[in-house]
């Protein structure tokens, strides 16, 4: 049975098609979800894609958090459904308080698009179990507000609980505290990541195939997960 992975489209979502493609290449069935429709149509996992939901007006992710589909998704994620937020999706997860901290303007104040080396710090999540601990991967980063910040106690707690999922290597592209590029919740089913694994799934269009691991991980997770 093919896993069904939902990809949400908010007004202003941009990488929704890419996320769906990545899901398909990983071997699952992508299911397009609409921001105004609270139904999840029986999906096994959900990706919140990159983009500028609602124009990123007010604050990145601040309005998307209140979309009807988000209520259902937040409930499902609290119940253990794997949920990946990429870039704008990460910002939405923080706004929705599924993940701690916040993503602020890049320290250098520019939008930055580059191929970024990351070290996978935690392979105990639903979205990173296909990697080796400490594995270095090359994935595009592209954001204007990707600087991860949290209070020191929260950062210490994330470190102590092994919830820093990935860190930037070879130069921090946005000024994130402790070079954090991805984090997870306590249960490990919700992951927010600033770089874009969905842009590293084809040799023809990406800098590597390293991004695929995030999407194959969730399939592994779903197979192993209790029904």
């Amino acid at each position: 049975m093919t896993a069904r992975v939902g990809v949400v489209t908010f007004p202003g979502s941009l990488d929704d098609g890419d996320a769906a493609r990545a899901v398909r290449i990983a071997g699952a069935e992508p299911v397009r979800l609409w921001h105004g429709d609270p139904q999840l149509y029986g999906v096994d996992a959900v990706v919140l894609p990159g983009g500028f939901s609602y124009g990123d007006y007010l604050r990145c992710g601040a309005i998307a958090r209140f979309a009807p589909v988000m209520e259902t998704i937040v409930d499902a994620a609290r119940g253990g459904m794997p949920l990946l937020g990429i870039c704008n999706g990460f910002q939405i997860l923080c706004e929705a308080h599924l993940l701690p901290g916040a993503l602020t303007r890049n320290q250098h104040l520019h939008f930055r698009n580059r191929d970024q080396i990351l070290r996978v710090e935690s392979v105990d999540t639903a979205w990173t179990n296909a990697f080796q601990p400490g594995q270095e991967v090359l994935i595009p980063v592209k954001n204007g507000e990707g600087c991860y910040v949290a209070d020191p106690a929260t950062l210490d707690q994330l470190e102590a609980e092994g919830r820093v999922v990935a860190r930037y290597l070879g130069g921090n592209p946005n000024g994130s505290q402790r070079d954090i590029g991805a984090i997870t919740n306590q249960a490990g089913n919700v992951v927010g990541i600033m770089p874009h694994p969905e842009h590293a799934v084809e040799a023809l269009t990406g800098p590597s195939l390293d991004g695929l691991g995030f999407f194959t991980s969730v399939l592994k997770h779903l197979v192993g997960a209790p029904a």
């Binding site: 990488d15 939008f111 698009n113 592209k142 842009h199 084809e202 269009t205």
Partner: peptide
Amino acid sequence: TEQYDRYVLGNTVLAQPEDSGVIR
């Protein structure tokens, strides 16, 4: 050029600094 997104839509086969941009 790094202030521009060259990846979105997932069909960029070549982009700057290449001689041409190539889109699938």
